[in-house]
Simulated assay, not measured.
Amino acid sequence: MQDLFFETIAVQRMEMMSRLVSVGACNQEDKAIALDWLAELNAELLKNLIEKDKKNPQNGGSDSGLLQ
């Protein structure tokens, strides 16, 4: 679980920002900027999770010892 701590925080922050943008008094330009930023954050988070999954020995990742 420790491995997913920072990812969980990132998802919580993205969720909060999504709520604020959707109900807040933002103009269309602000909403577009926020959505673009959320997309970038999400892509980076997904990349990190995929990389961690590749290294996870329990899932047969590259550090499982099978490739040595």
Rank of each mutant, 00 (worst) to 15 (best):
L49T: 01
E51P: 00
A32C: 03
M16T: 11
L35D: 10
E40F: 03
T8H: 07
K55A: 15
N27P: 04
Q28C: 03
V23N: 09
Q12C: 08
R13Y: 04
V21L: 12
Q2M: 13
R19H: 09
L4Y: 13
L20Y: 09
Q28M: 08
K55S: 13
R13M: 09
D63C: 13
L66Q: 07
L4S: 13
L66N: 08
M16N: 11
V23E: 14
E51K: 08
A34Q: 04
L35V: 05
D53P: 00
E44G: 01
D63I: 01
N59P: 00
I9S: 04
R19F: 10
N42L: 08
L41V: 02
L45P: 02
N27L: 05
A43V: 03
E15T: 15
D63S: 14
G24T: 02
D53R: 14
E40W: 01
V21P: 00
E40L: 05
I50M: 06
D30I: 02
R13K: 12
N59E: 10
L20D: 09
Q58C: 03
E7I: 03
C26S: 02
Q28W: 05
T8A: 10
A25L: 09
Q12N: 09
K52I: 00
L67P: 00
N56D: 15
K47T: 11
V21M: 08
C26H: 05
K47E: 07
A10C: 03
K31C: 04
M17F: 04
D53Q: 14
K55R: 15
S64K: 03
F6S: 09
E29M: 10
M14A: 06
D30Q: 13
A32I: 04
G60E: 12
L67K: 08
N48Q: 04
K52F: 03
K47D: 08
I9R: 07
S18Q: 06
T8V: 06
P57I: 03
I9V: 14
D36C: 05
W37Q: 04
